[in-house]
Amino acid sequence: MSASWRRVDAIVRKELRDYRRNRFVLGTMAAMPVLFITLPMIQLIAANATRNTAHLGLRIGLSLLYMLVIPVTMPSVLSAYSVVGEREQGTLEPVLTTPIRREEFLIAKALAAFVPTVVIAYAVFGVFLAAGALFAHPVIASAIYAGPHVLVQLLFTPLLAGWAIWVGIAVSTRSTDVRVAQQLSVLGSFPPLIIVALMSLNVIAESTALAIGLAATLLAFDLLGWRVVATMFDRERLVTGRGG
């Protein structure tokens, strides 16, 4: 059983084209980076002003955490839309009558939410790092690079996005209303971020080993999520839109 990348590609292309012409999606994609670069910048400026070392770690942690909200909320909004939205438009049935396999469909839907999210989240982080290097006091700049901050950011951005995508798709295979699906999936996407928050805000002592351990756990959950979503994917239920 080999996945056809052409079919995956066909869906991903279609999806990206659709995003570009969808005002709601474009709005979300534009507003989130703006919001979640502004909040960290405020922390950075505040840190620059006080240079109080006690609060410095907290402020940096908070800044980084803000940026991790992007990979949690954006893909859950996109992926929740991706199945329920298609059903509402009546486009799901024609797609499911093509030879596409459920794995191909799910991978395509996931990639279409994953790629833009990771690109935007990394770009925001890049802007933050650049701003820190260019405008912040050297003490702050070095605090950003202290400990596993950068590693956490790089590792958890895709892992949190992966989790949010499976939650979003899982919710939308069961839901019939786009709004409800989006709200539920944003809710369901937050729990792993709370663990990361406890670490970033130094409630549990932050260390490289802990970060890698948590990342591995989340990766395991992501893989499990994929299996669970694949078994939940039922053509009959999706097409008829009722419990089957």
Binding site: A10, R13, K14, R17, D18, R21, G90, L92, P94, V95
Partner: peptide
Amino acid sequence: PESPGLYLRLTVLENLQCFAGLY
């Protein structure tokens, strides 16, 4: 199907290209 189920934000050609890929 009973309702055409086209991607309304895509052109006719883009809709057909997507399905040519799916087949």
